[in-house]
């Protein structure tokens, strides 16, 4: 019983990380129909910014997190303006090629700058350790992840569903041409959304150093997880990816805990099965 709760708890925390990293991908895919396989590179960037700030300049963890967000968001804006923008109207094949190329470059640059080893991260003492609750040991850092993830999900939902900007995003996802005709500046909406999406990935990457690890192969290693969140959660909403990411997090942790000899096999099998049954995603847009 205790282990079940523990697995559920770890899985949810893990899922929150996946959500933070993937939600941007889901929105950009829905918004511009752009297949961005390099999305994980932004998460990696956030991770390295966080680690570097802490190690080399002694910046505290909680201050490094916003920096990771900003760095990834700025990188996203630059890349969007310089490169991505030219590919919205190109075929998916072209998009795949360009973004895979970027992944290779990102891996090479990260290896050159930081070496190929895993990066250590020292959590502040307030976030380390365990809490004991009803006989279950809760990792403080994972509680922190849950809180951060849940709050961001609430904020994102609010922005997307209650604000003018959110309405513009939803209209653009629905039909970019109609939105344009209604006077929404789709290109600007997209740029902002893209920046926020990349920023969130960066934040997720920084938060995830402790859980997912951080080495130069990060963007390649987790590509499937991000795609999976999008595939299961559908595009263009907050709830879909959130639900999908939590589900995946729990499934993955449970699989590794109860059936360690099977490993990631279950996860991939679930992915393929889901895609067969529901090619539009579990939480398809209405």
């Amino acid at each position: 019983m205790a282990s079940l709760l523990g697995v559920l708890f770890d899985g949810l925390a893990y899922g929150m990380l996946l959500f933070l990293v993937s939600v941007g991908l889901s929105v950009t895919l829905g918004l511009m129909n752009f297949v961005n396989l390099a999305h994980g590179a932004f998460a990696m960037l956030g991770g390295y910014v966080c680690v570097a700030l802490m190690q080399r300049w002694g910046v505290p963890f909680l201050a490094a997190l916003p920096a990771a967000f900003i760095a990834a968001a700025v990188a996203g804006v630059i890349l969007e303006r310089v490169l991505y923008r030219r590919f919205y109207r190109r075929s998916h094949l072209d998009q795949v090629l360009v973004t895979i190329g970027l992944v290779f470059m990102a891996i090479a640059v990260a290896t050159w700058a930081f070496g190929s080893q895993q990066q250590p991260l020292r959590l502040p003492s307030t976030l380390a350790g365990q809490w004991s609750l009803f006989g279950v040991d809760l990792n403080v850092y994972r509680c922190f992840l849950l809180v951060v993830g849940a709050s961001l999900a609430v904020v994102l939902t609010f922005v997307l569903e209650r604000t003018r900007f959110g309405a513009a995003v939803r209209a653009s996802v629905d039909d970019a041409r109609v939105a344009e005709a209604l006077g929404i500046r789709v290109a600007l909406v997209f740029q902002l959304t893209f920046a926020v999406g990349c920023g969130l990935a960066g934040l997720g990457g920084a938060l995830g150093v402790e859980v997912l690890g951080l080495d130069p192969t990060f963007p390649l290693k987790y590509i499937v997880y991000f795609l999976l969140v999008v595939a299961v959660g559908g595009t263009g909403s907050v709830k879909g990816p959130l639900f999908a990411a939590l589900l995946l997090g729990v499934a993955d942790v449970a699989g590794k805990y109860y059936l360690p000899q099977v490993g990631a096999f279950i996860l991939y099998a679930i992915m393929v099965l889901l895609l067969i049954v529901r090619p539009q995603g579990l939480v398809a847009r209405a």
Binding site: D94, L97, L102, F104, M105, A106
Partner: peptide
Amino acid sequence: PVYWQFWLGAGLVLIVLVGR
């Protein structure tokens, strides 16, 4: 090897930009 991977990626981006 790092050098190779970087230029492989850059080459890909370039190929697609120039015309596939």
